[in-house]
Amino acid sequence: MPQLTMGQALNQALKEEMTRDDTVFLAGEGVGVSIHDNPMLPTAGLLKDFGPRRVRDTPVSEAAIAGLAVGAAEAGLKPVVEIMFNPFFTLASDMIVNHAAKLRYLSGGKSTFPLVVRIKSGAGFGAGCQHSHNLEAWAAHCPGLKVIMPATAADAKGLLKSAIRDPNPVVFFEDMMLYFAPGPVPEGEHLVPIGQADVKRPGRDVTVVTWSRMLGVAFKAAEQLAGEGIDVEILDLRTLVPLDRAAILASVRKTGRLVVLHEATRTGGFAGEVAAVVMEQAFESLKAPLRRVTGPDIPVPASPPLERFYIPDAEQLVKAIRGIL
């Protein structure tokens, strides 16, 4: 299987879907001509391949970008729009939260909104809190949005293709630090179903539920603990909404222990939802209290030691796991 970075895998997904379906178009700031002349980025080269009818650079106007997607989707086009950094989700949020998410319901099911909002997210590049702020729990809290946050290049490709074909609004979070991470990616028609979690590492002793860039942290901790005979199961949610509750419950019923790991801040983070599902439906299987390992409740600071402090690491996860064994 060819090795691609996540950025290349996303690029392949966009290219394949645009080739397959003329109603798919891209819009956003720098999706055509970018200040980054980098072939690893998801939209690289697409303006050249598909031309300005299909690949639209917009002014710095997030509300208009998201609204464009809503209006065009109602007309049957399949917009894939980009929000440059996760914090700017707030500027697009009226169109996404009050419109994309609600209009199908408000129409009594008559209209559909087949749109994808791609959002570049994650911390780790030293730009500080107005460029790094993971808001996936906000999107997940809003009924009417599907929420995807892939961790591997293959999943990124397969999920983006599914998202573009989905008749409903999908918010698709891409961790920018993963753009350059390589992995095997199936060629051609590779679809990953929305709403299906994936056991990335089977194990007996404890379940770690995670997604996006934190999958790497989970693997690091699991390898370290394997040396001590502790067998960690890693469940990659991939999709937050709809949530694969069955996969979470099956894993926890098997291991009896749960740690939820995410980069986003703690209070109101999606770990709370995962924890609630387990408490409601698999309480009797738990051999110990569940734990959360998350970013602390602070804006992401810019200085390198402070930003490192913010981002959850394997050491914290190992400690949390040891604490419940």
């Binding site: 730009a127 500080g128 809190c129 107005q130 460029h131 810019a302 200085s303 390198p304 030691p305 402070l306």
Partner: peptide
């Protein structure tokens, strides 16, 4: 990104905040 910076390393170059000189907000 040093501790002696005007915002103790929290802002970096993009959000320099100096209310003491009448420059309370740099928004990126």
């Amino acid at each position: 990104g040093k501790r002696t910076g005007c915002n103790k390393g929290k802002s970096g170059t993009l959000h320099l905040a100096l209310p003491e000189i009448g420059a309370p907000c740099t928004s990126t």
